[in-house]
Design a binder for these strands. Structure first.
Lengths: 105, 105
DNA sequence: TTCATTTATCGTATATTTACGATGAACGAT
DNA sequence: ATCGTTCATCGTAAATATACGATAAATGAA
């Protein structure tokens, strides 16, 4: 008879899956690049470089903010976003760990 | 999704987003680990280690197969899956490139 | 105050994902 | 040939994701 399936997933697995989910749309990958390339990280500048409506970009920003990859700072009537390098490093570390675990590199 | 605008992004961005999507569920991350840990990579063994029904595991395997991260080989009435190391390396390379681009590590 | 600008959120439509039981197809064994 | 095993696929339901226009909230400027 089958073994009992009590095993849940580990915290690391859930966390990394969530990070990957936030990177699972090209617009969000591009947003991270834009935030790095531009001096300014104002929302309007990001919208200008994406083939998406402002409301849609706002949703993508929200998703990146949800997992902590970016942070928003209010700047007058604008909002200035930037990448959280600390979390980026953590994400890379976890990804490297996964790739090592599954026998790559 | 109404209309997909993924064609407006670069090939690399779309490809990497797709890889991340395939890693965006803890079950699929765990499947990759199981395939590495076990000698056998038969579907039944994978199902035994996941808190999910066989049909659901089969769907997750399909998603990993879709992006090429795993391959299935028919072995009598069974199917033996294994990780495609070549694609794994490509994925890691693209991820490293992204992290470098956005100023991490 | 009033107006224009900026961004988040609401409402909504549709697509996709996730999950499961049921079923079908392929195979080895009896 | 029939049976049991193994796995993929079908059918389906609920949740989530994606996209947009419209609107609200907040701010600075006139």
């Amino acid at each position: 008879m089958p073994v009992s399936k009590k095993d849940d997933f580990t915290k690391d697995e859930v966390w990394l899956a969530d990070i990957c989910k936030s990177l699972s749309h090209p617009a969000r990958i591009k947003i991270l690049k834009i935030l790095t390339e531009l001096n300014s990280c104002v929302v309007g500048s990001i919208v200008d470089q994406l083939p998406l409506a402002q409301a849609t970009v706002s949703q993508h920003l929200k998703e990146l903010k949800r997992v902590g990859l970016i942070e928003g700072e209010i700047d007058g009537p604008r909002v200035c976003y930037c990448v959280d390098n600390k979390l980026l490093i953590k994400a890379k570390k976890q990804l490297d760990k996964l790739f090592t675990t599954i026998g790559c590199c």
